[in-house]
Nucleic acid binder design. Structure first.
Lengths: 224, 224
DNA sequence: CCAAAAGTGTTAGTGATACACCCATGT
DNA sequence: ACATGGGTGTATCACTAACACTTTTGG
């Protein structure tokens, strides 16, 4: 009987790379690691690495993110697979890119496996990156804006309870434009995706209402 | 100097699979091949196969589509990569799924490499499929609808010159719902993406205007 | 003259935008 | 009392949805 032989062809290698975004100091930031191994030693790169035989792609992304940066428990979605023939000087390597979003307040970065440094960079000041990681970053920025318009992913950048103006600020940072306070609040509330919690305490002005998200993060809801 | 060894890990294998849609007999159809090799010999499956070392992912998708089905020159976009550990009984295989769209009028199917048959199936009557191809199909149907709403991909299902009612029919088939003729025409024309060509000849009713698409297929334009 | 599909306008309703003042708290 | 950000309503405009009749051609 004819049998397809899985070994008839040379095999490309397979990696995952993660573009993780957060908001800090009123800016959209992305996390890079400084490579401590060749190729591109001493260059900044997206966290990532080879996929193991016994883990799914998503598990590989989570593992690499944790190993290289210490970051855990984030919103994660697959973006795109990049497979140009010459994208890696070591040979044929396909990478599956993931986008992650997190509220960075409680995150402690730590450089570990194969990495000498880990750092948040403003998307407005991106260093020279290893491999085709600039292309991956550009792609993920487009996807990020798209997802912000049509889903609730933005809420993964906030703590579990948040005010309307915190959401608005995040949209203003990502779209780099101001929104009218009244219209923004009207729109968000009319979507019926928020649950009122309690009033925020110890603020030196009128205490704002805290909300939490009823729906699942990433759910499709036309926001803007 | 520390050097990252590309061979430190067992390598998963890498395939591409293509979900190709067309409209025939007023139905949305998808192309499957009957496998002539194990595993899943005699089962219907998406066209696809192993990625070679010297071709990009997109080239691999085009090559497999042509080799297995004879189909060429189609709209093609990457969908998603599927990497569950047990998705292939032969071992660890990741597949990069592509979606293709074509106007099937001029297409001659021919079963060749590793394939005993090739056939269009209505999306309403899908046979049992090999591997996780049902999951890939379901994903691509979601993506198809999404792209129809927000881009001009639908036009890749039509000949270069087409009438408004041909477009409308395609939208009605894909969304499985009727649209008002006047509102649909108004909307499409207001998008300013069509160029008037000549009147269609030899029709046994009032001759409709033929249009062509000004923009690139797949361009983002909110259609519905 | 009949059958078939093409083409075309108006109205009502819904959602988007623009815009400014008062409120509750901490210091 | 003052500084700070929170909260709220209305009027206009643009877009969407609902709806029916006349036109052009081939047979």
């Amino acid at each position: 009987m004819k049998e397809e032989n899985i070994h008839n062809f040379g095999k490309p290698s397979l990696t995952v790379d993660i573009v993780i975004f957060t908001i800090r100091e009123d800016e959209l930031k992305v996390l890079f690691v400084k490579r401590d191994i060749n190729p591109f030693r001493e260059k900044w790169a997206l966290p990532g690495g080879f996929v193991r035989m016994d883990e799914s792609l998503e598990d590989a992304a989570k593992r690499e993110l944790k190993e290289e940066t210490g970051v855990q428990n984030v919103y994660l979605e697959q973006l795109f697979s990049f497979g140009d023939i010459k994208r890696d000087p070591r040979g044929r390597v396909i990478t599956v890119a993931y986008m992650a979003l997190t509220n960075s307040e409680n995150i402690k970065l730590k450089a570990t496996t194969d990495v000498s440094d880990v750092k948040w960079f403003s998307v407005k000041k991106i260093p020279t990156l290893a491999f085709d990681h600039k292309k991956i970053l550009d792609y993920s920025l487009k996807r990020l804006k798209w997802k912000f318009e049509y889903t609730t992913v933005a809420f993964s950048l906030l703590p579990q309870k948040f005010t309307i103006s915190q959401i608005q600020k995040i949209y203003e940072i990502v779209f780099n434009k101001r929104f009218d306070k009244r219209n923004f609040a009207k729109k968000i509330i009319s979507l019926n995706i928020l649950r009122e919690e309690e009033l925020k305490k110890n603020v030196s002005h009128r205490p704002p209402m805290l909300y939490s998200l009823k729906n699942n993060i990433g759910e499709i809801v036309e926001i803007i």
